[in-house]
């Protein structure tokens, strides 16, 4: 069988990124949109780690920073979801129209 190269990992990461983008753009449930954002961040992480195999450890350090950012983003985003649910009794994004008139 053929060897697995960086190219293979890049294609997997691109597929995950596209799936995450489709989730962000098409779903109505905010919790699932946040999960799709986590998918996108994971695709980026896979790219960084795959390139760190070629160019030294810097990619792995950056992927750790990306994981830190994902934790911060999840905490704040889920706090916003709780506040939104308390006000509107729904978690559908297309019903978040408080700023519209």
């Amino acid at each position: 069988m053929a060897e697995i190269t960086t190219l293979h990992y890049l294609v997997v990461a691109a597929a995950l990124l596209i799936i995450g983008t489709i989730g962000v753009l098409t779903r109505r449930n905010v919790v699932i949109i946040l999960m799709s954002i986590e998918l996108i961040l994971n695709a980026v992480n896979l790219n960084l780690v795959a390139f760190s195999r070629l160019y030294g450890l810097h990619g792995q350090i950056f992927s750790i920073f990306v994981i830190t950012d994902a934790a911060a983003e999840a905490a704040v985003g889920l706090g916003i979801i709780i506040a939104f649910f308390r006000n509107k009794e729904t978690i559908n994004v297309d019903e978040a129209d408080l700023l519209k008139w």
């Binding site: 691109a14 597929a15 990124l17 596209i18 983008t21 489709i22 962000v24 753009l25 098409t26 779903r27 109505r28 994004v93 297309d94």
Partner: peptide, 16 residues
């Protein structure tokens, strides 16, 4: 799924 799901799908596939 929201009303713009077709546009979102096409845009994401173009990105892919």
């Amino acid at each position: 799924f929201n009303k713009q799901w077709l546009v979102g799908l096409i845009a994401a596939l173009a990105l892919g």
